[in-house]
Design a protein around this nucleic acid. Structure first.
Lengths: 217, 217
DNA sequence: TCGTCGTCAAGAGCACTGCTCTCGAATGTG
DNA sequence: CACATTCGAGAGCAGTGCTCTTGACGACGA
């Protein structure tokens, strides 16, 4: 039942965009709007459920994108494959992507559950760097210019999620993930309209540039 | 009159978030909601006006950020100054930033006027690269790996907006602009929550990394 | 001075939204 | 058989964007 509600809500989200109507979902189920409240205490809770599902769907797309690269030592190929998988999922599910990464809804505060699901995709990306560091392919670039406060934040994140990874490599991975997010959002949110038509190629070009900066051979 | 409406709408936007209510604006003006329709044919038109104003406000912030660097030959300093100015404006006006760069409203198609206003900020950034190329500080890095379709898109954009700039430099400038957008959006849309506390320092760190990639000395 | 013509805002109303509350029917369970 | 629980319907509240009609006000020309 709650799965049927979520499925229809996802369909409506894809068709109509962000403004999901409980009443429309109920109507399509042949029910009255108040019946939905048996299964979800509020519209925000429904959105939260969709968000968590979305993070996991994106994370799974990223993980299978990584797993499909047979040469596990090909760090660059794996990195690019994950980025492309992220973009493909986003292009295929633009409304859900906007729900996950777009402007936050005013009254809505993301519960803790969403943030743990959100880390799945960047974790696969940075996991590639961990593999490279463990294999000796990637070396610690040193503290570079990480200033004090940033250093502390990154160290905390490293200890919590990516044990053993040098901070500088974590920083590079985060930089790459943020650019992947930025490039996808830039495209999906209409900023590329009228300027770039070859979107996939342009995205790949950007990811290759970032792979250079990260130091992926 | 229409300026008063826009001012109040901006205030409501900043206070409440994206869901701007015409009736609330009218209420605050001591008018009835239908009176607003004398001045704006629809809510979307009001939003369009706010969007155009927003793009120009951001563009002006970027331009003054650039102009305040006295050493005009300090390309890297100018680039970083513009990026910081963009972030400062965004942090100061998060709802307006979300309106400009966040998830697009479903039924809303951005009119041509908005896209011309939108180009003002990236134009100041890439203008820095133009200055550097004209002065000989920056050299054409060559065609690099720009594949065919991307090459065509970039050439068209170059001819239209940045005459004389080598495509590879334009590509690097766009990469830097997209990362600036990505980093600001990542922060403002809540993706940094619980991970990075030193936001300004982390942003600056990212922009320095990108300045290296772009080749700013 | 009188009549006309725009401009402006008010008000009622339509269709829609999220959400709450109550009530009746169905479905087990002791 | 009687009870309890679950489920959905329905009415209703306060809010939304938007349309249409109505009336007040002021400027202008005859």
């Amino acid at each position: 039942m709650i799965n049927e509600i979520k499925a229809i809500a996802r369909r409506h989200l894809a068709a109509e965009g962000a403004n999901l109507s409980l009443r429309a979902v109920a109507r399509e189920m042949g029910m009255v709007s108040s019946a939905i409240y048996r299964y979800f205490p509020s519209r925000d809770e429904l959105l939260t459920a969709l968000i968590i599902d979305g993070y996991h769907a994106l994370g799974e797309a990223a993980e299978t994108g990584d797993a499909e690269v047979t040469d596990r030592a090909d760090l660059r190929g794996r990195w690019l494959a994950v980025c492309q998988a992220v973009r493909r999922w986003a292009v295929a599910h633009p409304a859900e992507y906007a729900l996950l990464f777009g402007s936050p809804v005013p009254g809505y505060a993301a519960p803790q559950e969403t943030t743990v699901a959100a880390v799945r995709t960047p974790a696969t990306l940075i996991g590639i760097l961990q593999d490279g560091f463990a294999a000796g392919t990637l070396v610690d670039p040193g503290p570079e210019e990480l200033t004090g406060p940033v250093h502390a934040d990154l160290a905390a994140a490293r200890d919590q999620l990516f044990a053993g990874l040098p901070e500088a490599l974590l920083a590079r991975g985060a930089l790459g993930w943020i650019h992947c997010f930025g490039a996808v959002s830039f495209e999906l949110f209409g900023q590329l309209d009228g300027l770039i038509e070859a979107r996939e190629e342009y995205f790949d070009h950007q990811m290759r540039q970032m792979a250079d900066l990260i130091g992926l051979p």
